[in-house]
């Protein structure tokens, strides 16, 4: 009798409802919106004794918890998952003055871990690591945490995934703009800074053009129309002040000194067509990591791997979660 449902969004893109929400108050006045997703209770009696393992997902610049929606759908049947909106993003509060720093991002992550994850680097007492997966600036927050809060790293984190990220020369290594000279030449870097960090200009563009520029920068040709729309909507929802504040931070960022202190098993994931943080970064990070656990290259994928390659990202997280510490 009833007509077929006229669903516009695939079920994969409908955010699951968290079991709990927390508001985390930071000393500098920022408030973080945190979600905790619980897996369904175990069916077999054998699994009942152990509590589920935890993954903490940290989104990147101009994104939000919504960005993880497809990965969440793949992880929540198996893991306890914590996601939060980084300062200035999503439902978290605007960034207080002076708050656009890697130190603040690292301290935020540390606070989220303290609030949601048991100490000893596991959540069930069975020696399974808590996995922190960071995408882009979220991964940078994790690297910054390794340099500044090693105690938190050692007590709470058992393994890490650095997805589509880099820790240095971010502007110079981008391949978003056509090549005008050597990748690390000052002219190219200056141009990248000017164009990439200008939120006002982006929002002044007609919507269609703004989307096209974002797709060009962050996605590859393989991205589907739904993925493109969803991704660009997330970026366009980012407040302009957040967008520009962190763009400036990223322009000067160099966390290469912190990378060797990320001494937990760490996997690196990158899309081969990533223009924002090209595979150059992935290989370089892998060489500097004290405890590398392999490089996952997603063929054809751009920068937004959790949206366009959720299977690969979720598999990498589960792989780390199931690896004995």
């Amino acid at each position: 009798m009833s007509a077929p449902a006229l669903a516009l969004y695939p079920a994969d893109f409908l955010p699951p409802t968290p079991a709990r929400r927390l508001t985390l108050f930071r000393p500098d006045g920022a408030r973080l919106a945190v979600q905790i997703h619980e897996p369904p209770p175990p069916r077999s009696t054998a699994d009942r004794g152990s509590s589920p393992r935890t993954a903490v997902l940290v989104h990147g610049w101009t994104c939000s918890t919504t960005f993880w929606v497809r990965v969440l759908h793949r992880l929540t049947p198996h893991l306890r998952v914590v996601v939060y909106d980084q300062r200035g993003h999503g439902r978290s509060s605007p960034v207080p003055a002076g708050g656009f720093t890697p130190e603040a991002l690292a301290a935020d992550l540390a606070a989220v871990l303290e609030a949601t994850v048991d100490s000893d680097g596991d959540s069930g007492g069975d020696g399974r690591p808590v996995v922190v997966a960071g995408h882009s600036m979220g991964a940078m927050a994790l690297v910054a945490l390794a340099g500044r809060h090693p105690d938190v790293l050692h007590r709470r984190v058992g393994a890490a995934l650095l997805a589509s990220t880099g820790v240095e020369q971010l502007m110079g290594r981008m391949t978003v703009l056509p090549h005008l000279g050597r990748p690390d030449s000052p002219a190219v870097e200056a141009l990248a800074r000017r164009t990439i960090g200008d939120a006002r200009a982006l929002h002044r563009l007609p919507l269609r053009l703004a989307r096209a520029s974002l797709v060009r920068a962050t996605m590859s040709r393989t991205a589907t129309p739904v993925e493109r729309a969803f991704c660009t909507d997330i970026v366009l929802a980012c407040p302009q002040r957040t967008y520009e504040g962190f763009a400036e931070m990223l322009g000067d960022l160099d966390l290469s000194a912190d990378l060797p202190r990320l001494d937990v098993p760490t996997a690196v994931l990158v899309g081969t067509q990533d223009r924002l943080t090209p595979p150059w970064h992935a290989r370089r990070m892998l060489a500097a990591l004290p405890c590398p656990k392999g490089l996952v290259e997603v063929p054809g994928a751009g920068h937004m791997t959790p949206l366009t390659a959720p299977d690969a990202v979720a598999a990498a997280v589960r792989d780390l979660a199931e690896r004995p510490a």
Partner: peptide, 10 residues
């Protein structure tokens, strides 16, 4: 603005 919330409201 958030496409996730928008999806739930569509």
């Amino acid at each position: 603005p958030d496409p996730g919330l928008r999806a739930l409201l569509t």
